[in-house]
């Protein structure tokens, strides 16, 4: 029973990672860049939701929508200002710019909202939860897992079935050829950033509800974890990011419970190394062999 409870809360944590990883992975798939600012967009999302509920007294649903909206706009603006001028540049230049953006958001938040951590409101999701036998599962965990599954299915349908989704896949394969087919590559990239950042806001609300203390450096570790989850599943793959996120959350929670609280990071990253050695392109990633 104890094990099952750790497993389920691990799935809850993993679902948050999965939502972040989905955003990370989509941006990587289209723009071929490691967006190190993703974690900081999560931080902004958490602060917006916090001020909307605790400051302005908005109902949670409105606050979540507002947070998604702010993050979406922020993501698109960042892409336009910082990443678009570097479309032709080397991937390392874009990486450094993303780090610059990450520093900018972190320090901007520090100036605007101060270094002291704030307490995220706990009234967004219902307290308690159903009890099965001796096992109580919190509503938050159930909602998190459900939201994550819904997002994953919607994204798969969107990317797989719609025209825009097809355009996205075309851009990720070959931007030049996609342009020749009449696809507006810049619009598609903006849309990808919008979706990724919107997902970051949802992840922010769920993360804030799980770990209620929020501070300007909140995004750093989840950002790295989302990156790890995306790579674990095979970066660029939607079901891969989902699987990677869940796996990461479960491993982290179980190692915290059974092995060592302090060493959980080392264990999580150790598992990542082992998995990448067995499957060098991640669990569900495609191995692209180089043509000569």
């Amino acid at each position: 029973m104890q094990f099952l409870s750790y497993l389920i809360s691990g799935l809850g944590l993993g679902s948050v990672y999965a939502i972040m990883a989905l955003g990370y992975s989509m941006v990587y798939g289209i723009a071929k860049m490691l967006n190190f600012a993703h974690g900081d967009i999560i931080m902004v999302g958490a602060y917006v939701a916090f001020f909307a509920i605790s400051g302005a007294g908005m109902p949670p649903a409105v606050a979540i929508l507002l947070s998604v909206l702010v993050c979406t706009v922020l993501g698109v603006v960042i892409e336009r200002l910082a990443y678009k001028p570097l479309r032709e540049a080397s991937s390392l230049a874009v990486l450094i710019t993303a780090i610059g953006v990450s520093h900018f958001l972190e320090n901007g938040a520090l100036i605007l909202w101060g270094a002291d951590s704030k307490f995220f409101p706990s009234n967004i999701f219902p307290q308690g939860g159903p009890t099965i036998g001796s096992l109580t599962i919190s509503w938050l965990t159930i909602i998190t897992i459900a939201v994550c599954c819904v997002i994953m299915i919607l994204l798969m349908l969107f990317v797989g079935r719609t025209n825009t989704g097809r355009a996205m896949r075309a851009c990720s394969e070959d931007k030049g050829a996609a342009t020749l087919m009449g696809i507006n590559v810049n619009a598609i990239i903006s849309l990808t950033f919008a979706i990724g950042s919107g997902l970051a806001a949802i992840a922010a609300v769920l993360l804030g509800s799980t770990y209620p203390s929020i501070s300007p450096t909140l995004g750093a570790m989840p950002g790295i974890k989302a990156f790890t989850a995306a790579v674990l599943g095979g970066i660029g793959s939607i079901p891969g990011a989902f699987l990677g996120g869940l796996l990461l959350g479960v491993i982290e929670n179980l190692s915290k419970a059974y092995i060592s609280q302090q060493l959980s990071d080392a264990i999580v990253f150790g598992v990542l190394v082992v998995i990448l050695l067995i499957k060098p392109a991640g669990l569900l990633g495609r191995k692209v062999s180089e043509k000569v």
């Binding site: 990587y28 990156f227 790890t228 790579v231 970066i235 990253f269 150790g270 190394v273 990448l276």
Partner: peptide, 10 residues
């Protein structure tokens, strides 16, 4: 990028 993340992990 897979190589990069393993160095990050280490």
């Amino acid at each position: 990028d897979y190589l990069a993340i393993v160095t990050l992990a280490f």
